[in-house]
Design a protein around this nucleic acid. Sequence first.
DNA 1: GGGCTTTTGCAAATGATTTGCAATATCAGT
DNA 2: ACTGATATTGCAAATCATTTGCAAAAGCCC
Lengths: 136, 136
Amino acid sequence: MEKQKLAIPKGYRKTRQREAILKVLEQAEYPINAEQIFMELRNRGIDISLSTVYRNLEMLTKEGLVVKSYMMNEDKARFALPDKKNYLVCEKCGKIVIIDNCPFDKFKEELIEVHGFEITGHSIEVYGVCPECQKK
Amino acid sequence: MEKQKLAIPKGYRKTRQREAILKVLEQAEYPINAEQIFMELRNRGIDISLSTVYRNLEMLTKEGLVVKSYMMNEDKARFALPDKKNYLVCEKCGKIVIIDNCPFDKFKEELIEVHGFEITGHSIEVYGVCPECQKK
DNA sequence: GGGCTTTTGCAAATGATTTGCAATATCAGT
DNA sequence: ACTGATATTGCAAATCATTTGCAAAAGCCC
Ligand SMILES: [Mn+2]
Ligand SMILES: [Mn+2]
Ligand SMILES: [Zn+2]
Ligand SMILES: [Zn+2]
């Protein structure tokens, strides 16, 4: 099956700003924060305000198109498309690497069985030292 | 081996406030935020200021005695002893259940092999609906 | 107990995120 | 294409969790 094109949810209007935010998130390699999205849009010549970025991120998150997360020692939220929500972070240089084949699915069954929860989502953050930083 | 008693790290002074914060965290069943710790201390008759709570949480986190985390749709940090850092959250009622046998360890090896990271820590948050809320 | 350093409390500052409001844009229905 | 109803935006101001400066109080080694 094809990687399906990201569409603005039913009931919401298609605006220049909204589409541009989604495009930035599609092209991002890992979760980024509101300010970064804002600046990237400015670089691309998109006229937008920071509050519009925040308002759209809130709605996209609520609709499940985007996943919000927090990184250790940062007090800003980051946002990413769902396929980039699990990652490794280097404690030394801050490098972020996406975990592609999410290990979590294999444990879903076990968690359901043990706790009786119906599971709707998860997020995994792993800290460590990247190969480059290990050499130093 | 015994569950070792939580001690204030070498080089730091033993204060009434610091010990009380640690005790609250020891007795907590899941991660709680600074304000909750503050109010619990007040309830227990401990005279303390909110900034002292924050300052101690920062130092305890830096020293690794405490783990900081963020929950979805909350903009406050939560703190817990390391054994309570992975949890399930009910999207309906907010109930939090600790994941005792952390599934992550089984994937550590695979992550190390695939990404070359030296892994120092992780945090897992799982969202879902608890058994009680499913009945409704 | 004395002296030296850390810790605390309080009030003020910070900084990310949210919100009120008036202006603008989108879109469904004509 | 035009219009009205409604959603969205920009800007400035408000929020609120967290941090910080500073002077007073406490802990610790001798
Ligand atoms: Mn996963
Ligand atoms: Mn904040
Ligand atoms: Zn690195
Ligand atoms: Zn529930």
